[in-house]
Simulated assay, not measured.
Amino acid sequence: MSLIRKLLPPLISGALFGAGLTVSGMTDPARVRGFLDVFGQWDPTLVFVMGGAVLVMAVAWRIQSRMAHPVFGEKFSLPDRSDLDRPLIVGSILFGVGWGIAGLCPGPAIASLALSPLSVLPFVAAMLAGMALQKLLTQRARAA
């Protein structure tokens, strides 16, 4: 598979995803925090974004079940229930707390780099540092 054919689908998908996040306002931390403020001035916008994502995935799962292999790959890499372990659960909790505090998660943060890099750069730097730390700790645990 040529490098262009291998990289083009994820590049287009990522650009479409980033554009969707931007158009829907999900790159605005205040909007995300407004969604999480259920006892204050609640902003339901994110419910519609999530609902749209659920509908798209419902259709995608139906299409995928009828396919022998992905269009741009050799095999599907689907999650299974054995993926639920302590590091995943702890990481999910940390993700949720960070999302609530910052109003950003990785997708919107990366998309925001194109719009307002200075305001999101500390978050992205901390996110990358956390990813590097997790990789280092995982490698050390495997070596021990």
Score class of each variant (00 low, 15 high):
residue 5 R to C: 09
residue 5 R to I: 08
residue 8 L to D: 00
residue 9 P to F: 03
residue 9 P to S: 05
residue 11 L to K: 01
residue 14 G to I: 02
residue 14 G to P: 05
residue 15 A to R: 03
residue 16 L to G: 02
residue 20 G to D: 01
residue 21 L to C: 02
residue 22 T to R: 01
residue 24 S to E: 07
residue 24 S to W: 05
residue 25 G to N: 10
residue 27 T to R: 04
residue 29 P to G: 07
residue 31 R to P: 01
residue 34 G to Q: 08
residue 35 F to T: 03
residue 35 F to I: 05
residue 35 F to E: 06
residue 35 F to H: 10
residue 36 L to P: 03
residue 36 L to W: 09
residue 37 D to T: 02
residue 37 D to S: 03
residue 38 V to K: 09
residue 40 G to A: 08
residue 42 W to T: 02
residue 43 D to Q: 14
residue 47 V to P: 01
residue 48 F to A: 10
residue 53 A to R: 01
residue 53 A to K: 02
residue 54 V to C: 10
residue 54 V to K: 03
residue 55 L to A: 09
residue 55 L to G: 07
residue 56 V to I: 15
residue 56 V to M: 09
residue 58 A to D: 11
residue 59 V to W: 13
residue 59 V to N: 06
residue 60 A to D: 10
residue 63 I to T: 09
residue 65 S to Y: 11
residue 66 R to E: 15
residue 69 H to D: 03
residue 70 P to G: 01
residue 71 V to L: 10
residue 72 F to K: 07
residue 73 G to L: 10
residue 73 G to R: 11
residue 75 K to E: 15
residue 76 F to N: 10
residue 78 L to S: 13
residue 82 S to W: 05
residue 84 L to R: 04
residue 84 L to T: 07
residue 85 D to A: 04
residue 86 R to W: 12
residue 86 R to G: 07
residue 86 R to Q: 11
residue 88 L to C: 06
residue 89 I to P: 03
residue 93 I to M: 03
residue 94 L to H: 01
residue 96 G to S: 03
residue 97 V to H: 00
residue 98 G to T: 06
residue 99 W to H: 07
residue 99 W to A: 07
residue 100 G to D: 09
residue 102 A to L: 13
residue 103 G to D: 04
residue 105 C to L: 11
residue 105 C to W: 13
residue 109 A to R: 12
residue 110 I to S: 13
residue 111 A to P: 11
residue 111 A to L: 05
residue 111 A to D: 07
residue 112 S to R: 15
residue 112 S to I: 08
residue 112 S to T: 14
residue 113 L to W: 02
residue 115 L to M: 12
residue 115 L to F: 08
residue 117 P to D: 10
residue 119 S to F: 06
residue 124 V to H: 03
residue 124 V to A: 05
residue 124 V to R: 02
residue 127 M to F: 09
residue 128 L to I: 12
residue 130 G to Q: 07
residue 133 L to S: 14
residue 134 Q to D: 05
residue 136 L to V: 15
residue 137 L to D: 01
residue 137 L to A: 05
residue 139 Q to N: 14
residue 140 R to M: 11
